[in-house]
Design a protein around this nucleic acid. Structure first.
Lengths: 236, 236
DNA sequence: AACTGTGAACGGGTTCACAGCC
DNA sequence: GGCTGTGAACCCGTTCACAGTT
């Protein structure tokens, strides 16, 4: 690369020339996790080959993905683990803290409230809500569960704009609407139902059974093959 | 389509001519969920347009996806909800039951054990394991938690070939290896670490914080715009 | 020598437009 | 008339090959 980094500010932040492809954005968290594990093992440098293997992709893809962030590697050497962690974190917006609320304190809500992976990435669980009077007032992961009717006031007070929905399916849509009304801009939905929100709201859906269904699809194929084989083998 | 369904057996099962694209397989569970909700509302027929909207995709994509399964729609009318549910279920291998084990009975494991969405899709949670003596013997969702040392015997006895890993990160790799040794062929990993398994094993990873990180990325953009503007900066 | 960074070729997946059918 | 099914065009993303750098 001949041109000096005219597309960089002096903090190293790259002025976005071209947007990062969605597919790449979706892989950055995976790289981040792998890099975190490498850092924990005191490994200082990593090649695209090693990173690729750990992340379950191929080396050129790693290099291409990382090149969208900037030229943060060293030819002949590899990538500095710590520096790369920082750059990816910054790109994903994880160098700042994100206050997060969870609505629905059943098993899943409780599991999410205690999930270490959030805190490590800057997501601070700051408020928990439930409809059930029995649960309100209980402490989960150091936070007191508030009643859902305090949602609006509490969120505004704490300036929370990211929320996780972990309610039963039938309560999810109403919950989402209240969240939006209370100023929430991003919603992560774990409830097993499809939510409708205004266009400006970022919504992502996690269906815990989707991955299992995908596994079943591929497993079924094999099973099919196997059984046929077992019934009079020939194919291996 | 002029040719008669020479690629169909008399049960309506399509003899796979071309493999279903991976991207389509990943969307089938979403359609299935939406169709389930429509069926619950007694809706009998749905157009690709309505289905697309509820699933968060566009109509041609729905039609293309469904066309890989066969011609199960009626021109001028739409798709029969119930029939389509059946066809997608069959394609995904959900018309049979899948016995499933869960290893790691912390909050997340317990939440998964009680997750309704599994049972609705034919996934039967048949065994729960934990390392902690305190937990062994306790009942969760009608099942008694077994000690991890009984893993091999119990899995073989129950002929379980699909397992969910919900252990802490440091125990996940060892758990996976024991599962594989015990004959498990598909693993769904919720532990926040990257697993290595033999090629023949189907592995899928669910990282509860990945989606939140993706949300943060897009949220940051907006916020960035906002704050820059607020700070009086000229660049937009 | 080793490994990154990237234009270019390639391919899978998405979208389009319309033919086909009810 | 309305809606599906699908070849063809298009496009995003992946892969390749190698130039560039330490």
């Amino acid at each position: 690369m001949r041109t000096p980094p005219a597309d960089r500010t002096r903090t190293g932040a790259r002025v976005r020339t071209r947007p990062i492809p969605e597919a790449t954005v979706a892989r950055l968290p995976v790289y981040l996790r792998v890099l975190g594990e490498l850092a924990a093992q005191q490994i200082q440098t990593v090649s695209s080959e090693r990173l690729a293997e750990a992340a379950g992709v191929n080396p050129p893809k790693v290099r291409k993905d990382l090149s969208y962030l900037g030229s943060y590697g060293t030819r002949g050497v590899g990538y500095d683990v710590e520096y790369l962690v920082y750059q990816i974190s910054r790109e994903l917006g994880l160098t700042q803290d994100w206050p997060v609320a969870i609505v629905g304190m059943g098993n899943l809500g409780q599991a999410l409230a205690g999930y270490k992976g959030f805190g490590e990435r800057g997501f601070r669980i700051m408020a928990l809500f439930d409809k059930d009077i029995e649960r309100v007032g209980q402490t989960v992961s150091g936070l007191t569960i508030e009643h859902i009717d305090d949602l609006e006031g509490s969120l505004k007070e704490k300036d929370i704009r990211v929320a996780i929905v972990a309610t039963p399916a039938q309560a999810a849509q109403e919950t989402a609407e209240r969240l939006v009304a209370a100023g929430v801009r991003s919603i992560l939905n774990f409830a097993p139902t499809v939510l409708t929100v205004p266009d400006k709201i970022h919504l992502r859906q996690v269906d815990l059974s989707v991955e299992l269904q995908i596994l079943a699809f591929y497993e079924q194929r094999n099973a099919g093959k196997k059984r046929t084989a077992a019934a009079g083998d020939g194919a291996h």
